[in-house]
């Protein structure tokens, strides 16, 4: 069941999605990629230390 485009609920849904997608489509900022790299490096080091 698709609401008509002049249905207020459909308009709200479309705007909410547009707002959300405007952020989602920015992709992943470098700070988060760097953070994950660091977390992984720390973990690998502790795994290696643990194997000694």
């Amino acid at each position: 069941m698709r609401p008509k485009s002049d249905d207020p609920n459909a308009q709200i849904a479309a705007k909410l999605k547009a707002l959300y997608l405007s952020v989602q489509e920015e992709g992943i900022p470098a700070r988060f990629l760097d953070l994950l790299e660091k977390l992984e490096a720390v973990e690998q080091r502790s795994v290696l230390d643990g194997k000694e």
Binding site: L16, L19, Y20, L21, V23, Q24, E26, G27, I28, F32
Partner: peptide, 11 residues
């Protein structure tokens, strides 16, 4: 999941 997680936080 990160792009959607960011969009959630931003919203």
């Amino acid at each position: 999941a990160l792009p959607s997680l960011r969009a959630f936080a931003m919203s």
